[in-house]
């Protein structure tokens, strides 16, 4: 039986653990916290599985590989909500919606009635919306905790430290920067709110030239607002300006958010390479899976599958990269 040690229990580590343990490997996950939690940036994610929307700025592999994500998560037992997502723009930014539509695929343009059928609370304020019908979302924290539970049942061990056995797969995200000098952090700030005054059934993106926002609905009237994207590796210190921008945008989306309860302000930095694309890299006797940027839940399944195909079937991964010096 192939022996595997995975470092890190964020979304990358858990996906690789799920894939390899599911294909018969003996897997140990080493993480000082022995599981997912606020110390890792995937804890602060939105949980949108939105490959089509990401295609606005992301490169082709993100869209193509990201389309595999929702089915993979569902096969792992995650509660994936397949309601698509919506893209909106405020009155004076309406050309942003046209630009977004030009640069993305798999959407239909809704008029006010079409929007009302999907999200009645938004229809009174927005005459047009793009419906990205193939997209889905999940609750990231619940998904990671559930996945860890299923991995434990499957015999995967979670240890705070200890000797590494067999093949070592380093999924530590930004913490692996000591051995991946071309990895950088991209700071993101987010807010979690609760209000019974508005209901949404799917993620909503509000386009804006300076303050774009997405809102992901969770259970019990909870909403996640995200996220800033700042070229900084700082993993703490949400700024007033950033939070104010997120809250302003939410208020512009719907005034009901003004009376929402502020549950959490979160901040962390996403691990990214210079092209914002992920890498599987072999170096110093370790395999690194890193650089998922803002696409952790979207791309970790594809990367996990590639690691499995490589280690077990000898197929070279598409995102394999051994040139660690490049910038």
């Amino acid at each position: 039986m192939t022996e595997i040690t995975i470092l890190g229990s964020g979304v990358a580590g858990l996906c690789v653990a799920a894939e390899l343990s599911g294909r018969g490997c003996r897997v140990t996950v080493i993480d000082p916290d022995t599981g997912p939690g606020p110390q890792g940036c995937s804890w602060w994610a939105g949980g949108m599985l939105a490959p089509d929307c990401e295609g606005e700025t992301a490169e082709e592999p993100v869209v193509r590989l990201g389309r595999q994500a929702a089915a993979w998560w569902q096969a792992q037992g995650a509660a994936v909500t397949w309601n698509g997502s919506l893209v909106l723009a405020l009155g004076r930014d309406r050309q942003e919606l046209d630009r977004f539509a030009r640069r993305t695929e798999n959407h239909t343009l809704l008029d006010r009635d079409g929007l009302a059928a999907l999200e009645p609370h938004l229809a009174e304020r927005f005459p047009r919306a793009l419906h990205m019908q193939a997209e889905s979302h999940l609750n990231p924290r619940q998904t990671l905790l559930d996945l860890r539970g299923r991995l434990l049942e499957r015999g995967v061990r979670f240890l705070p430290d200890g000797p590494t056995q067999g093949t070592v797969i380093d999924c530590r995200g930004l913490a692996a920067r000591d051995s991946l000098p071309d990895l950088r952090g991209v700071k993101g700030e987010m807010v979690i709110l609760r209000t019974p005054d508005i209901a949404l059934s799917r993620p909503v993106r509000l386009l804006h030239p300076r303050f774009p926002l997405y809102i992901v609905p969770r259970d019990d009237g909870v909403f996640m607002l995200g996220a800033t994207q700042i070229e900084s590796g700082e993993r703490g210190r949400a700024s007033v300006r950033s939070v104010m921008e997120l809250l302003n945008a939410a208020y512009a989306l719907h005034p009901a958010f003004a009376e929402a309860e502020l549950l959490e302000i979160g901040v962390d930095a996403r691990p990214a390479f210079a092209d914002n694309l992920p890498r599987i890299r072999q170096r110093n006797g370790r395999i690194y899976v890193n650089g998922l940027f803002r696409h952790g839940y979207l791309l970790a399944p594809a990367l996990a599958r590639m690691v499995g195909d490589w280690l077990l079937d000898g197929k070279t991964p598409e995102v394999m990269d051994e040139n660690h010096g490049e910038r």
């Binding site: 952090g185 700042i230 070229e231 900084s232 590796g233 700024s239």
Partner: peptide, 18 residues
């Protein structure tokens, strides 16, 4: 905005210098 508490934007600035 990038400066942060401990010159956390240094990686990006290195990219610019490069």
């Amino acid at each position: 905005r990038e400066a942060g508490g401990d010159r956390a934007g240094a990686d990006f600035w290195d990219l610019i210098r490069d």
